[in-house]
């Protein structure tokens, strides 16, 4: 009996010790939070004074203690995201001498720390600074670090590093294509030639070609439409993903000369391709395309029906839509929906 009692007491003690560990964690966290608030409470107003011109970086910098370098850089990193123009430059000028303190973070074992360091370095450094760090981060073994570097390159519109980013696209295969395309597009149309090269290169993976095509569509790159049309004509049937990306390019910047490539696709077996073809016909098609589109309003896929009805509206064929809306079959609801858009 005594053994049982003592054992139970020991178990209670162990659990209490665990609970004590959590209390210790709370105390430690509170201590850290207080320290952070103290540093923030001192430096945030100081940085506001700096922005207001009430003090200078040279006056403030000697007050940054060695143990405060990283928190102060983090405060600057947060602030620099909220300001623009001259204010941004003032913060960067102040933070620049402190950035060397991020060195240990850049070499940290944890990829999240390295990514954070790259984020801070690049948001507070100028374009020419830390180029080598960014290039190294792009080929970092961790896709997270590489992605953070790529996003930095894109958001800062570092055209000089565009090819390095494109070279890493394969590593971001898991990321959403729309996200990657928008990231590339944010670099601006100056990188269009490189994107076109990737889009048209059969050496690149289907994902990379699809992403670059979507990026080209985002900034409405006219020459890309010919590449897209050429692909659809020659290899389209072999690669659904790329076919869809190519159609999106034509949807964005297609011209009437591409209609011959698109029209047959209204009868394609894949409903996504039929729907995209209908949309394109609505945007660049001619009145004669109305017949095929009217038939597509009764397509078995509701997506095709909706896109076809919308296309008819874009072509201005309101009477056809009215007629379709009275049929009472599956397509009439799509026609009514399109007519409602006209009314609104």
């Amino acid at each position: 009996m005594l053994v049982v009692v003592w054992s139970l007491a020991a178990l209670v003690a162990v659990n209490l010790a665990l609970a004590g560990g959590v209390v210790f964690l709370r105390v430690r966290n509170d201590f850290r939070a207080r320290r952070w608030h103290r540093i923030e409470g001192r430096w945030y107003p100081a940085l506001l004074d700096l922005l207001a011109g009430d003090t200078t970086a040279a006056t403030l910098l000697p007050y940054v203690q060695q143990s405060e370098v990283v928190p102060v850089v983090e405060i600057c990193g947060r602030m620099v995201r909220r300001v623009s123009g001259d204010d941004r430059k003032i913060i960067r000028d102040f933070a620049r001498p402190l950035l060397g303190g991020l060195g240990p973070m850049l070499g940290a074992r944890q990829p999240e720390k390295r990514a954070n360091a790259i984020q801070l370095l690049t948001s507070l450094g100028t374009d020419d600074e830390f180029r080598s760090e960014v290039v190294a981060a792009l080929v970092d073994p961790s896709p997270l670090v590489s992605m953070v570097a790529a996003r930095v390159v894109a958001s800062r519109r570092r055209i000089d590093l565009a090819s390095e980013v494109l070279g890493q696209l394969d590593r971001f295969e898991m990321w959403s294509e729309a996200f990657l395309a928008s990231m590339l597009a944010s670099m601006g149309s100056e990188i269009a030639p490189e994107l076109r090269d990737s889009f048209s290169s059969s050496d690149c993976s289907s994902t990379v070609r699809s992403v670059t095509a979507r990026a080209l569509a985002e900034f409405r790159d006219l020459p890309a439409s010919d590449i897209a049309a050429g692909f659809i004509q020659e290899d389209g049937q072999d690669d659904r993903v790329l076919m869809i990306a190519s159609l999106r390019v034509i949807e964005a910047v297609g011209q009437t000369k591409h209609l011959e490539v698109v029209r047959p696709l209204l009868g394609h077996e894949d409903s996504v391709i039929r729907a995209l073809a209908a949309t394109i016909l609505g945007k660049i098609g001619v009145a004669a395309d109305g017949v095929a589109l009217a038939a597509a309003v009764s397509d078995e896929s509701p997506w095709v029906a909706i896109h076809a009805a919308t296309a008819l509206r874009l072509l201005g064929q309101i009477d056809t839509l009215r007629e379709l809306s009275r049929t009472g079959d599956a397509g009439s609801e799509a026609a009514l929906e399109a007519l409602e858009m006209v009314a609104s």
Binding site: R81, Q110, E112, K113, A115, N116, I118, Q119, L144, M147, V148, R151, S176, E177, A178, F179, L180, A181, S182, M183, A185, S186, E218
Partner: peptide, 22 residues
């Protein structure tokens, strides 16, 4: 632990502004 660290390197606000959000 890693998730929390990751949040620091890819900010929610930046993701919010990304045009590629579904």
């Amino acid at each position: 632990h890693r998730y929390i660290a990751r949040l620091k390197s890819l900010h929610v606000n930046e993701l919010l502004s990304a045009a590629g959000s579904l």
